[in-house]
Design a protein around this nucleic acid. Structure first.
Length: 101
DNA sequence: CCATTGACCAGCT
DNA sequence: AAGCTGGCCAATG
């Protein structure tokens, strides 16, 4: 991937405040690379386990958490709840989104 | 080079 | 609300 894209994405995600969430598409758009939502996901899948990036605050545009039913998905739910973001049926309620979807 | 594969998305039914 | 469809586009084999 283009390093510019990668850096921009990291920057945007790092800027999502605790208690709020965003989506892959929104992150891609804000990074200046529309149509690249899938690559935001690709980058997430390649993050080291000890990354400091709040990747758990990035959801799908339909408000579902990523990777439902996988270990990473469970971790994501746990981390969201740890910062008082409710997860109901693998979803986060609309008001918690930083940017309107 | 062609086909398949995604931590995806918007529009339609 | 939930499922389908077509679009997206770099990486992978």
């Amino acid at each position: 991937m283009n390093p510019e894209f990668r850096e921009a994405v990291y920057q945007i995600i790092a800027a999502i405040p605790p208690g709020k969430v965003s989506s892959y598409g929104a992150v891609a758009r804000q990074a200046g690379f529309p149509h690249h939502a899938r690559f935001v996901g690709r980058l997430m899948s390649q993050l080291p386990e000890d990354t400091r990036l709040p990747w758990h605050r990035v959801l799908r545009s339909d408000r579902h958490i990523a990777l439902v039913g996988t270990p990473a998905g469970q971790i994501q739910i746990q981390r969201l709840r740890d910062e008082n973001i409710p997860v109901i049926n693998d979803r986060v309620p609309k008001p918690y989104f930083l940017v309107p979807q």
